[in-house]
Amino acid sequence: MKEKRNLLRRIGAAFLRFLEGAGKLTVFALRATSHCFRPPLYPRLIGQQMVDIGYYSLPVVGMTTLFAGMVLALQSYTGFARFSAESAIPNVVVLSITRELGPVLAGLMIAGRIGAAMAAEVGTMRVTEQIDALNTLATNPFKYLVAPRLIAGVTMMPLLVLVGDVIGVFGGYIVSVYKLGFNASAYIQNTWEFLEFQDVASGLVKAAVFGYLVALMGCYHGYQSRGGAQGVGAATTNAVVSASILILISNYIITEIYFAQ
């Protein structure tokens, strides 16, 4: 009986901790988002973050989507050849890349590259009292640290994904034309013919949401970190894991909203 009560107590405590964490994150997100719309903004810092997220992530996202497109063409061919449906490969590649693989893979890569860096940077600032120093210098850390990262995340991710989409489709094209023997102009024509604006738009909306989530998780976990190097390490891990999970969950929700009949 006592053991059961202890178990219930532990479950209850864990549930309360979860609610407390969710509440803290919600308040943090609302505060941070509100500062994105209220002056003063810091164009210099926003620009720096944009370069960091957009420009320096381009090689990683490009490589990821390129190989994703190539593998997709190869796998589709081995599957579709059984039903003599090889002509569907351009459609499968372009729809998969623009709707799903482009934004999701880019989101996960950015979570690893940028989310971790944000958590480490903000976390180090927290444990070395630099965030306290911002407060004493009459500067709001939400405005100075968090808002520029959120703005850069939301604006740069769609651009990254757009470039990633093009590279991913190009990857499928390379494999299909040079390895599988597709006609180049027919491949391109098939790709354009079945691609709709909504396919690309839904991917870009996802990208903006993922950019927001990655920046939010990086800043939130960094901001909450305590206790020196170990705390910063834990914040970095938590930022990447939570951003990745949220990306996958929100991906399903957005897909459901966009394409559910």
Binding site: T124, E129, Q130, A133, A138, T139
Partner: peptide, 23 residues
Amino acid sequence: SRKDREAVNAKIGMLFQNAALFD
């Protein structure tokens, strides 16, 4: 409020234990 606190902090200087300089 946050704004009033910023006004108060504007007339305060602080030397932190490890200086807390922005890297």
